[in-house]
Every structure is written in C-alpha cells, then in structure tokens.
Design a protein around this nucleic acid. Structure first.
Length: 312
DNA sequence: GGTCAGGTCCTAT
DNA sequence: ATAGGACCTGAC
C-alpha cells in the first residue's frame, strides 16, 4: 500500500477519457488499472470536490512504494505539471475553458507502445464500450492471468476482486500463434486481419527492432512509419504517437474532435498557441465533448453515411 | 430497424 | 490527389 497526494489527477476521468480501455471501477471510489502485465487498485478519497484542485487529491495505491515509483509514477505522467498546461488556455476561449474545468483530472498516460497499437487498431470506426469488451476478451484469451491477491488484501472491507480475473496484455507472439481463427468471437469484426498482421510484424527480434525504431523516432517520423502499416491511418497513428509514444504534440482528429472543430472553431483552431502540446488540449476537448448532448456539438443527423445495397 | 461508434482500404476519376 | 462506398458488430 502506498499513499500520496496527486494534483490534476482523477482516475474516473482518466477511465472515461477514451485514451485507455483497461481501467474499471471496483467499488466505492475504487478502480483497477491493468497495463501490460502490471496491476494496481486505486482508491481516491473525495475526488469529486478536492480531487483535482490546487491542493491535490489523496490517493491510495494497492502496490508497494517501489512499484509505484518504478512504474505507476511514470505511467500516470506524474512529472508533468498539468496545471501549467491548463493556464496556457486562452481566457477568451469559452469552449476550452469549460473543457479544462470539466476534465481537470485528465492526463496523458504513458502506455505501452505495443498495447497502444493494438488498442487503437481496435478503436477504429468503433465505440468505447465494444473496444473495452474486445480488448478484455483478447487479454483473457491470449494473456496471462495476473495474481491480484496481495492487492485485494489492501482493501479487506471492499473485497473488490471477488469473481473478477485480470490478465496481462498478450504478447505479439501469442496473438500471432492463434492465427485469424484465434481472433474470431472477440468482437473485432473486420479489424481482426489488422491485428494479426501487426502481431506478426511485432513478433520476434525483428518485431522488437520495429518497435524500438518507433520509440526512437520523433513525432513526424513515427507517424510516417505507423501510417505505412496495414490498418493504420492518420488518426490511429496520431493516437499511438500521443498515448504510446507520448508525443504530446500529436492531435488526433476523430469524429468527435471533427464535430468540435466544425462547431466551435469554424474559422480554424489556434494550433499555433498550443504548439508542441496540442494533444493534451485535444484530450480535454474530447472528454468534455462526450458529456455534451449530441445536438450541442454539431453532430450530423439524418444523413446516411453510405447507401449500402444488399445483394440478392 | 437504421444510425452511430476515437477510420481505413480500395477503387474510380 | 481526392472522393465515395464497403466494412464487422452491438448498443441505442
């Protein structure tokens, strides 16, 4: 058990921010986080009010201090001052001011590259509920079951893990070995072939070399490499750059962000002002947008996306 | 029952 | 280079 006070940190907001799919509630103010083959349970006292203010939030981690310092501190990007980022927001920009206030506990997590690649391959043309389901199913099928006993002991009165199992994110080799058949019934749909190709790409020593080359590239270089891979376009490449490589200048434009830009920035978004960290700004925008009624954010209605015909 | 979801690929201009 | 349609699937 490790206890600390964290500023600009709200685990529930992180869970719902769309950048990560393996955080889950497990009781009152209690959340599990599974990343790679790491597992921890967090409890945040009174995060609704005090959670992200200047005084910070009281947070309990179910792991040791060593595990916190060697892994989770980096994972949650706790060295970066997000308060300073928020202060760069244009005071005249009502939308962004509201977004930053609403998502005050958001950060850009430093997720594992391989896990991020697969997660955002799955995310394309998909919804967050199903993305979570598919990733959990993938981990349960090809990952290793994690031992969480030591962690549940930290929360004896909550018994948070009764009946729940947690699995490591599978290796490229494990997924590749299963073939296309192994990816059936995970709810992946047509993305299965992208996953398999990427699992093969990242397997073995050449795979490690490929991942290392991405780690070493700058944002433009990494984006270019990623966009050359099967199933990865600009948007997914930007998500991988932002969440898996921590290039915080990457600015993924998805259907939600597109609607925001069209509705609230018809004359263009001030990218210059947020040069080098626009990805963080994007995350506040995205999370806030999810909370708005569909009509408020310029969602198109009534127009079919495609006129599909059925044969036969 | 159609639309939509943190898009990309493929084909036709 | 750019535009338009097809595409797995399930929650709403």
């Amino acid at each position: 058990m490790y206890q600390t006070i964290l500023k600009d940190f709200d685990i529930r907001m992180l869970m719902d921010s769309g950048q990560v799919f393996r955080i889950a509630p497990c009781g009152e103010d209690c959340y599990t986080v599974t990343a790679g083959d790491h597992f921890v349970c967090l409890r945040c006292a009174g995060h609704q009010d005090a959670g992200c203010g200047k005084d910070g939030a009281f947070v309990e981690f179910s792991c040791t201090e060593e595990e916190f310092l060697s892994f989770w501190h980096n994972y949650f990007d706790l060295s970066l001052d997000y308060g300073a980022i928020k202060e760069t927001v244009d005071p005249e920009d009502a939308f962004l001011q509201a977004a930053v206030a609403y998502g005050s506990g958001i950060r850009i997590l430093r997720q594992d590259l391989w896990e991020t690649i697969i997660s955002f391959l799955i995310s394309q043309n998909n919804n967050i509920t199903r993305i979570r389901r598919s990733i959990e199913a993938l981990c349960a099928k090809f990952g290793e079951k994690l031992d969480t006993d030591g962690h549940s002991l930290s929360f004896p009165e909550d018994r948070p893990f009764t009946g729940a199992s947690f699995y490591s994110f599978p290796t490229p080799e494990a997924i590749a070995a299963g073939g296309l058949d192994g990816l059936q019934e995970l709810g992946l749909g047509y993305r299965d072939k992208y996953i398999l190709a990427m699992a093969k790409r990242c397997s073995g020593a050449p795979g490690q070399e490929f991942l290392a080359s991405l780690e070493q590239a700058d944002y433009d270089g990494a984006q270019a490499i990623l966009m050359g891979e099967f199933g990865i376009g600009r948007k997914v490449a930007d998500c991988i750059c932002l969440y898996g490589l921590h290039h915080i200048g990457a600015f993924p434009v998805d259907t939600h962000v597109k609607q925001i830009l069209a509705s609230f920035y018809p004359d263009g978004f001030p990218f210059r002002r947020y040069e080098g960290f626009a990805g963080i700004i994007q995350q506040y925008m995205f999370y806030y947008k999810l909370s708005l009624p569909a009509s408020a954010a310029g969602k198109k209605t009534g127009k079919p996306k495609n006129a599909k015909k059925k044969a036969g």
